[in-house]
Simulated assay, not measured.
Amino acid sequence: MTKPNLTLLEKEASERGLLLRIQVRRPLNIWSFKLVVGEITSNTKIQLLGEMKGWAYQNTKGLQLDTMKVGKNVNSKIGDLIWASTMAWALEETPCRSARLLAIYDENNQHEILQRYFRRRGFNTVRKVGSSPLDLPLRLVWGGAGAFMVGNCEKVFERSYRSWSE
């Protein structure tokens, strides 16, 4: 079997009645992306089911993941498709082999749920981002305090694709 790539994922999504699209911009040698999954509801309407936003640098510092949203009452496979597609794009089009994100600290229960969700995807907590002056750059980038987590793009892709394709 051929290793799945973004084109194959778009085809698989289409076969399930979904539309998968990625918009990439490259100002100042930084990839900025928005990946969306929608469902065609009529000839002229598409319902947005989920999205991922982030950016990547020219160097191998890693893929920076900023926003991941999946609509309420949406099949969990949509999240799997978003993760697999994002990682496939990063592995195909960028030098990034790792991904970074911040599990924002909103409230105890929600923060724990986020961390558990990201760990299942293949991310590990590197450190806590709090109110230290050393944390200021990360707080500015991600807009808050939380758990700074890093994952291997290939590992995240494999876990997500396996769940998507089941």
Results as ranks from 00 to 15, higher is better:
residue 40 I to F: 07
residue 54 G to L: 02
residue 131 S to R: 09
residue 6 L to E: 01
residue 89 W to M: 01
residue 39 E to M: 12
residue 123 F to H: 09
residue 55 W to M: 14
residue 68 M to R: 09
residue 40 I to W: 04
residue 152 N to W: 05
residue 44 T to E: 06
residue 114 L to N: 12
residue 58 Q to V: 07
residue 18 L to S: 06
residue 166 E to G: 14
residue 96 C to Y: 02
residue 81 L to E: 06
residue 26 R to W: 01
residue 1 M to N: 15
residue 127 R to E: 12
residue 88 A to Y: 05
residue 40 I to D: 06
residue 152 N to L: 04
residue 89 W to G: 00
residue 89 W to C: 00
residue 56 A to R: 03
residue 57 Y to C: 03
residue 164 W to Q: 10
residue 39 E to S: 07
residue 24 V to D: 00
residue 31 W to H: 08
residue 134 L to H: 04
residue 155 K to W: 14
residue 84 A to R: 10
residue 163 S to C: 10
residue 24 V to P: 00
residue 56 A to W: 02
residue 104 I to E: 12
residue 86 T to G: 15
residue 126 V to Y: 12
residue 62 G to A: 02
residue 76 S to G: 12
residue 34 K to C: 13
residue 112 E to P: 02
residue 102 L to R: 04
residue 107 E to W: 01
residue 150 V to Y: 07
residue 28 L to V: 09
residue 116 R to Q: 15
residue 61 K to M: 14
residue 63 L to Q: 06
residue 15 E to K: 12
residue 114 L to H: 15
residue 83 W to Y: 13
residue 100 R to F: 12
residue 142 W to V: 01
residue 112 E to F: 09
residue 150 V to G: 02
residue 125 T to E: 15
residue 51 E to C: 13
residue 135 D to I: 00
residue 25 R to L: 05
residue 7 T to S: 12
residue 74 V to C: 08
residue 121 R to W: 14
residue 149 M to L: 05
residue 16 R to W: 08
residue 132 S to Q: 06
